[in-house]
Amino acid sequence: MAAEKSTNLIDPIHQFVITRITDIKIGNVDISFTNSSQFMVIATLAIMAFFMLGLSKKSIIPNRFQIMCELSYEFIANLLRTNVGDQGKAFFPFVFSLFMFIFFCNLIGLIPYSFTVTSHFAVTFAFAGLIFIGVTTLGFIKNGFGYLRMFYPSGVPIYMAPVIIPIEIISYLSRPVALSVRLMANMLAGHSIIKIFAGFIVMMGFFGVIPLAGLVAIYALETFIAFLQAYIFTILTCIYLNDALHPHH
């Protein structure tokens, strides 16, 4: 179906189709190398290249590349310090890689003919689900069963407990869904809009200049959203980490 539709010029969803590059199967599990995995690898290599280039010459008066690397480090370090506190330092490598990976995936997805990894719910939910499991485990390790007190806010009368506790548990379970849907929806919507506007340019001929101007503006907005969504994903991870380390409900 995807192949038939590719002839259609304005098919905003076609850019999200996953194609297999090499077929790999272990037992009944399909772990083929797809275009999605290809762009994950590209994003990882881009991050490595970014830091290798930036930090190859460690000078006291840094050049632009080094400033970018140091800014990204300081940005995440500040985020952790303000949201989690000193205990958060242990999680810096994880949070930093998470932010850089999502940010680079979003940015690389903006390059024409590339693929946006983060526009798929499977990918974002894998991130959010793993974070959720990790944070919950951490909460139980750090606080024991006292972590369960999070589901029963202090000051609530006991006869309200049968209602409040399920509500709090559902609210807790909805975190990874909300986290992943937000990132996925933003990427999906943004890229579809870009594609639709690009279609208008072709359709309108000479007057395509008008949607072209709009497209430039949307593209700028999308670049900002690429950063903002990575930031939101990271800051929420920090907030959940903080809840696991110091539950104070």
């Binding site: 559902i170 609210s171 379970l173 909805s174 975190r175 869904v177 909300a178 849907v181 937000r182 929806a185 933003n186 959203i225 903002l228 930031y231 939101i232």
Partner: peptide
Amino acid sequence: IKPSPIGKVLKLAVEIVAAMAIG
């Protein structure tokens, strides 16, 4: 860094829908 108004609204919408879906 401040999310745009649309970002804020989306955030709230996603929160309510996600909790309902889980329920």
